[in-house]
Design a protein around this nucleic acid. Structure first.
Lengths: 226, 226
DNA sequence: GTATAATGTGTATGTAAGACACAAAGGTTC
DNA sequence: GAACCTTTGTGTCTTACATACACATTATAC
């Protein structure tokens, strides 16, 4: 192999993470605000270079810790973006990941070496002029997340360890932006055998408390609190 | 951005194509045999470097023409492989694509600048010691192809312009390695509204000829005959 | 104890999937 | 041309799943 061939010299590999959460019935995505050139002050999806001794998933998790302080997230690769003009600096492709977390107990870093701020944005409030091609990446991630939400364990990490069926239903309704019949939703989800009733009750005032459920099996996707 | 940082210097981007076909009721994959180091004489999936002025899909199609002479194929990205040790030469990630073609009328190049041979292999006959991590890539591609075969237009390119329903069923049976009931298969496929009866009849001797069908809509995935 | 606010439950209907057997078309053979 | 061979083409019944829909229950607040 002709490593120095100018046709494919100076290529770079980035990872980019679209991290979603649901709070107050709204789907939100985590963005960070740049402090450096290019795209100074623009918002972007958390992203960064892959080191030569890492695979992309490892790099993505390291970047998330460095730029946002969030660790232990479950992510899935969804698409690799390779438009040759996507970065003005150099030839850079981006391997895209999707993640979902329960943001209730997560404190995000606001300021880091390369970022001046970080925020959860409602999808409707995301600025149009994200850095690089991150708007395109985000739009594709939203579509794919909707498709996967019914098919992969991605939703586990959105809920606390114990949750009620109405809470679960609210999450699906927020993400898919549609309403479900309560009886049908419960019937369908329960027969999937993914969750079980703990026998515990929700601690709430003002109305009948709901049963608490938990996902059957692993707790491997628990999110560490930073 | 610190372009010269040794932590992410000298990275390379490859594309790799798992091109399937079905012939004589068997699923086959196209492999090429290397002539250069490393992995001299080993078989591999067609693959190559992405140039700095191309996106990955363009590079993949160019590589296929250069290494196999096959053009005009429809492909879908499926996964990016990034194990830091996957290439012994340098840090190299591979963006993986899946394609399917009707190989009946395709003549493949046998010898090129970097390859000494190319062949369609039955899946059971693929050598275990493919170059790089191509065995792993192939195994993942097979799984994903099986899932997508029912959901994307990928199967269009496997059949000639006009085909019979039994031919279509044979293709699905070969790929999924299971038998379908003829009546149920026809009922299901016809109600998808993807194909239409042309009114023409198959030209065959020895038994009742079948109706010829065609895919509704575009011919955009026609494969050029080289 | 009465009102309020949410949870929890069963049935009936429509739609898609899966199992299953025989007639029809064309060619070949005698 | 009659009988036979090979493959295509077709309908119904059963089962599972998706959808539509209304009322009783549990707790708190007043």
């Amino acid at each position: 192999m002709d490593i120095g061939n100018p046709r494919y010299k100076n290529q770079g590999i980035h990872v980019v993470c679209t991290l979603f959460t649901v709070r107050d019935g709204e789907v939100k995505v985590l963005l960070v605000q740049r402090s450096n050139k290019p795209y100074t002050d623009k918002w972007m999806l958390p992203s960064g270079a892959v080191y030569n001794d890492e695979d992309c998933e490892t790099a993505m998790k390291r970047e998330m810790i460095e730029k946002t302080g969030i660790s232990g997230i479950y992510v899935e690769q969804f698409h690799t973006f390779s438009n040759p003009k996507r970065s003005p600096l150099m030839r850079m492709i981006a391997v895209g990941y999707i993640g979902i977390v329960n943001s209730e107990n997560i404190k995000i870093k606001k300021k880091t070496e390369k970022t001046q701020n970080s925020e959860w944005f409602n999808l409707a409030d995301v600025p149009c002029d994200l850095a690089y091609d991150h708007r395109e990446i985000l739009l594709e991630a939203i579509e794919i997340m909707k498709k996967r939400i019914m098919k992969t364990p991605i939703v586990r990490s959105l809920l606390p360890k114990y949750f009620t069926l109405p809470e679960l239903q609210n999450v699906y309704e927020a993400i898919l932006n549609k309403k479900f019949d309560r009886r049908n939703f419960r019937k369908k989800f329960l027969q999937l055998n993914l969750i079980e009733n703990t026998g515990l009750m929700q601690d709430i005032k003002g109305h009948r408390p709901a049963n608490l459920y938990k996902f059957i099996g692993t707790d491997e996707y628990d999110v560490d609190i930073f």
